[in-house]
Simulated assay, not measured.
Amino acid sequence: MLRLEQVSVRYGATLGVDRITLEVQEGELVVLIGANGAGKSTTLRAISGLEPLAGGSIHFDGHRISGAMPAQIIDRGIAHCPEGRRVFPQLTVRENLEMGGYRRTDRQRMRQDMERMFDKFPRLRERAGQAAGTLSGGEQQMLAIARALMSRPRLVMFDEPSLGLAPNFVEMIFALVQEVRREGTTVLMVEQNAYAALQMCNRAYLLTNGRIVSQGTGAEMLANEGVRAAYLGG
């Protein structure tokens, strides 16, 4: 479904991503793990068209999307739930969800999808008219996920969905990510909780200094001594 071929992203003289090649098959949950600054978020931003490539190519469903504008990539069926949630704080919960579907023209189905999001996230229904900036961190993460799903993506990318959340919300968010995949949406996820991510994923890539240094199934990566020593506490 998604393939990155020798992709590089440059920040001035520094390569944030250095000639990485990876793929995501339809229906998979694939995770990127690695230390802060390894290039994980930059990879997602490159796929979304938010970072220009210094080299390589990105294809989705056999069509080249590298060089496309972010709105065009959304139209292709890729949604991005960014690190730090990035909700629109002055807009209401309902208005944030409407922004998630702003490219859609099927307004009736969009309203139906909003009701579906409220069914999936009852707390958001309770706070539909409330400014998003007044929600708790966990509630804002729910809103960010629901907003990404409002575009009816075929592939959704989650960037650090558990970051900064209380343990009860972390468990809830991971359950939601798995539910999204079970419902038929392919998932590519960056996650700092490597142990939890590897337990739930089909496959994983380990990035170090902008390069992929290891890859395998979740079980293989959990059993990898180098991965365990560096990221899983031995």
Rank of each mutant, 00 (worst) to 15 (best):
M200V: 14
M69E: 13
G77V: 03
A54P: 12
R181T: 10
A35N: 11
S214G: 12
A229L: 07
R86V: 03
I33M: 04
G49S: 03
L53W: 08
T208N: 14
R19L: 01
R203P: 09
G12E: 04
E220I: 06
Q25Y: 10
E220L: 06
V180L: 07
A175M: 01
F169D: 14
G234R: 10
L32T: 08
A223C: 08
M157E: 09
I212V: 15
E95A: 15
T92V: 04
T186W: 00
Q130Y: 02
N202L: 01
S162A: 12
I33E: 02
K120L: 15
Q215K: 05
K120C: 13
L163Y: 07
G137E: 02
G101P: 05
V31Y: 00
E191L: 04
K120I: 05
M189C: 13
L91H: 06
S162D: 07
R94L: 14
L97Y: 02
R123I: 01
R64F: 02
C201L: 04
V190H: 01
Q6N: 15
A219I: 11
R181M: 03
Y11E: 02
V227H: 00
L143A: 07
L222W: 03
E139S: 09
R203Y: 10
E28F: 04
R181E: 03
S48K: 09
V156A: 13
R109W: 00
A148P: 03
F169L: 14
T217M: 03
R182Y: 01
T21D: 15
G218I: 08
G67S: 10
M114R: 05
E28W: 02
T21W: 09
F169K: 01
R64I: 08
D18N: 15
P122T: 06
G138E: 03
P161M: 12
R3S: 14
E115N: 13
E225I: 05
I58L: 07
L2C: 07
A46G: 10
R127T: 01
E220F: 08
Q108P: 01
V213P: 09
R19N: 12
G56W: 07
G16W: 06
D61Q: 14
K120P: 00
F121I: 01
Y195M: 12
E171S: 14
N202V: 07
G210L: 04
E183N: 14
G210C: 07
P167Y: 03
L222F: 04
E160P: 11
A71Q: 13
A54H: 10
A35T: 09
V187T: 06
G67K: 14
Q6F: 00
G101E: 04
R211T: 13
L135P: 07
A148R: 02
L97H: 03
R228V: 08
M114C: 04
E98R: 15
A38R: 13
G34T: 05
V156S: 13
D119W: 00
L222N: 05
L207C: 10
A196C: 00
V30L: 04
R109D: 09
K120M: 15
I78P: 11
L53C: 06
M189K: 01
F169H: 13
S48Q: 12
D75C: 13
R211G: 11
Y231N: 07
V187S: 06
